[in-house]
Design a protein around this nucleic acid. Structure first.
Length: 398
DNA sequence: AGTCCACAGGAAGGGCAGGCGA
DNA sequence: TCGCCTGCCCTTCCTGTGGACT
């Protein structure tokens, strides 16, 4: 036998009863056939889009709701079904789903258009062409034949935040330029104030219809988890109270089903890894910690060196609260020590805001009277996660 | 009442990379 | 090859500001 240790691991793994029958049913990419507690929204969206089946142009729709309230799922489901029916009946309908939050995919005007074009089988260089040329290609492609195109733009607020609402204006005006095709836009956002920040012209044309997705409560989350758990787990392997606990934690996070499903999945994975016969409440606790830790470490790893240096400086200062100036001073020292270029305080200020946005730091602008106005910065991580993060940063810089 | 601190954060623009067509 | 385009990171310059201190 080549390796006794590994051999033991693998045979033990094989001997164990599996936990999952279909782990995929608990992942984000899974689209179920029915979505519990979303009948109302599903039918509403269906009704709005139905005119596409008779060659009409469905109204533009705005969909609101917090993270994990089923917005994307319902749109995907309705889209899929509509596509199926139109395909079997030979009706030219084309569904395109684009998520603006995917970095490097659709977070700028250019990339959004390039992303949509890709769905139509047109490859465009990911930079280089002038925007008006992209628009030309875009219009031409859309207008190639008689068809109804339904564009689902997910996380549309991030797109507008970064690029302004001119893109949306251009998109809503598209129907006047197109001769054969008709385009409807479904904008999905979890920012309820988003529509108020838009140009009135865009607001009225894009918000012809609105659908609101309220957060799930704990009982509804339990239903969702149960239907998925039946698909995902071996029978009788999930202990009493596990689903309730995941649901409760998800409900705490603004009724977030994604969070609840993640918890259940990771709890199952942890049970499997430790060869337990049952998924227990303890696994959910561990899952909660693991998800947070993974999120933080992944986020930090993906940051540019300069941001990591700032974090390093903040951890090194090692006190509960500090202000921008202090962090900047320590950061400069570290730059010299490790041989990095020193960025300006203005830039550091932005990077600190970014880290706040990622949920790694807590910052608050306060005025200390005589002693100026500054941002009070503190780490928003548990000590356990802080220690792991410190290790990661040491690895990077030493 | 006025001053002044220590920044926040907006605006504009430089410089670079990746990519185009000619 | 060149001139041109865009996105991105960053700098420079600037105005704004809440409240302790005088």
């Amino acid at each position: 036998m080549a390796n006794r240790v590994l051999d033991e691991v693998f045979t033990k793994y094989l001997k164990n009863k599996p936990v999952f029958t279909n782990r995929g049913a608990l992942t984000l990419s899974y689209t179920p056939h029915t979505i519990p507690h979303r009948d109302e929204q599903t039918t509403e969206l269906g009704k709005i889009l139905a005119p596409a089946l008779k060659g009409g142009k469905p109204s533009n729709v705005f969909i609101y709701g917090g993270t994990g309230t089923g917005k994307s799922l319902v749109s995907a489901l309705v889209g899929e079904e509509l596509q199926k029916i139109s395909d079997t009946n030979g009706i030219p309908v084309k569904f395109v789903y684009i998520n603006c939050k995917m970095k490097k995919q659709a977070d700028t005007e250019y990339r959004l258009l390039a992303g949509i074009l890709k769905e139509f089988g047109k490859e465009v260089p990911f930079t280089g062409l002038p925007t008006d040329q992209i628009y030309n290609i875009f219009f031409k492609t859309m207008d190639e034949k008689e068809q109804t195109i339904i564009l689902i733009i997910d996380e549309i607020d991030t797109l507008v935040q970064k690029n302004g609402d001119e893109i949306l204006y251009n998109l809503t005006r598209m129907n006047q330029e197109l001769k054969k095709a008709k385009v409807s836009i479904i904008g999905i956002t979890n920012n309820l104030n988003f529509i108020d920040s838009l140009d009135p012209r865009v607001r009225s044309s894009l918000g012809e219809e609105e659908i609101i997705f309220p957060p799930y409560n704990a009982v509804q989350l339990q239903d969702i988890l149960r239907t998925r758990a039946i698909l995902a787990f071996q029978p009788d392997i999930v202990a009493d109270g596990v689903i309730e606990k995941c649901a409760a934690l998800g409900a705490q996070e603004h009724g977030d089903a994604r969070r609840a499903l993640d918890l259940l999945r990771v709890a199952g994975e942890l049970a499997e890894r430790s060869n337990d016969e049952e998924v227990k409440i303890g696994h959910v606790d561990a899952a909660e910690e693991k998800i947070d830790l993974d999120r933080v470490l992944e986020t930090v790893k993906a940051q540019p060196r300069q941001s990591q240096l700032i974090l390093y400086a903040i951890m090194e200062l090692g006190k509960g609260e500090m202000q921008t100036g202090e962090v900047f001073d320590r950061y400069q020292e570290l730059c010299r020590e490790f041989g990095y270029k020193v960025l300006t305080q203005r830039r550091i200020s932005d990077l600190i805001s970014e880290l706040d946005l990622f949920g790694i730091l807590n910052t608050k602008v306060v005025s200390k009277g005589r002693y100026g106005r500054t941002r009070i910065i503190s780490l928003s991580l548990s000590t356990h996660i802080q220690n792991k993060l410190k290790k990661l940063l040491y690895q990077i810089f030493l």
